[in-house]
């Protein structure tokens, strides 16, 4: 964390005196969005607001309405009701203007061309007024994508890379990514998350969907959960992380008494077995660490907090008890 005064020196008020933080308009603003496919209703009055410069995770099981919502943003699908603004514009009337400023990765990317990835990406770049070949090559290198192969012979993972390159290459103000990490191996997932972080560092916005929280939890500022066409929750990821429970195992040089740890703040499911303490810590492990420090600690293991469990069980319960309405 930089010191609080840093922005006084490094973020001077721009000339003309405009305020940097004067409540910018949301980049995506959705109110009461409904969508019917014939008699089937896919979205039931969705409300969602994505702020400029944030990474927003859009979560939910398959078939919950994530892709439908995303397609409405790009005017591929027309809404049945409600209001939608993307970059301040209505997709129904300003689709072309919106798409010029947005990079989009389809959830189910199909590439059938016999031509090479380089050729396809140059063409897509030309539809946007041209993207330098060097920029395409740089992204391809980062993602380890061979540009000289015909796209239709590419594996699922490599096709996904082509999709990512075309979404990122023109440095759009807003990236809309539908299941971006599907098909990528863990190493490339990490590279992708770095690219997302760079986009955020430049003040641009990322809206990405996933059916699993773990794919977005490391990078998202906020996340929303959609289920059966309804928004179930919007959460600040830091707050969620603070609430998250982690498993801790501590081994001491000598046996310890269970009573020492039983009443510590946030500690539950305590098991003491001679010199080893196992427990679950909710929120900060501070109290546990300080108590443990009274003894000689040989080992200290802490598993990643499982946000997934917390996130989904919490909201499933709430929804089923009729609380979320």
């Amino acid at each position: 964390m930089p010191p609080f005064w840093e922005h006084l020196f490094w973020n001077p008020v721009p000339e003309g005196g405009a305020l940097v933080h004067a409540a910018p308009d949301p980049v995506i603003d959705i109110r009461g969005l409904t969508k019917d496919y014939g008699a089937h209703r896919a979205l039931f009055g969705l409300d969602l607001s994505v702020r400029a410069g944030e990474v927003f995770g859009f979560l939910g099981p398959n078939g919950a309405g994530k892709s439908t919502t995303i397609r409405v943003l790009l005017d591929l699908v027309r809404r049945s009701g409600g209001e939608v603004r993307v970059l301040g514009l209505d997709p129904r009337t300003d689709g072309v203007a919106i798409r010029r400023r947005v990079g989009y990765l389809p959830g189910d990317l199909v590439l059938t061309s016999r031509r090479t990835a380089r050729d396809l990406l140059a063409y897509l770049g030309d539809l946007r007024g041209g993207v330098p070949a060097a920029r395409i090559a740089e992204l391809a290198e980062r993602l380890d994508l061979d540009l000289s192969r015909p796209v239709r012979s590419l594996s699922k993972g490599n096709r996904q890379k082509v999709g990512l390159v075309q979404a990122f290459m023109h440095r759009p103000e807003l990236l809309v990514l539908d299941e971006p990490t599907s098909g990528l191996d863990p190493l490339l997932q990490r590279e992708f998350l770095e690219m997302v972080q760079e986009v955020r560092a430049e003040g641009r916005t990322v809206f990405m969907s996933s059916h699993v929280l773990s794919e977005v939890q490391d990078v998202a500022d906020r996340a929303a959960v959609v289920r059966r066409g309804r928004l179930v929750a919007v959460e600040d990821m830091d707050a969620l992380r603070r609430r998250a429970a982690r498993r801790v195992r501590v081994r001491f040089a000598a046996p310890v008494a269970a009573a020492e740890f039983a009443s510590l703040a946030g500690v539950r499911d305590l098991h003491v077995d001679g010199d080893t303490v196992r427990c679950v810590v909710e929120g900060s492990p501070d109290a546990l660490v300080k108590q443990a420090a009274r003894h000689t600690v040989l080992e200290f293991d802490s598993a990643e907090p499982d946000l997934e469990d917390l996130f989904f069980t919490y909201y499933t319960d709430r929804e089923e008890s009729g609380d979320a309405a």
Binding site: V96, V102, T112, R128
Partner: peptide, 14 residues
């Protein structure tokens, strides 16, 4: 039907 049109129409074309 092949799935290619979606990507094209996500670009600034009408």
């Amino acid at each position: 039907e092949d799935g290619g049109l979606e990507l094209l129409l996500a670009h600034p074309v009408s």
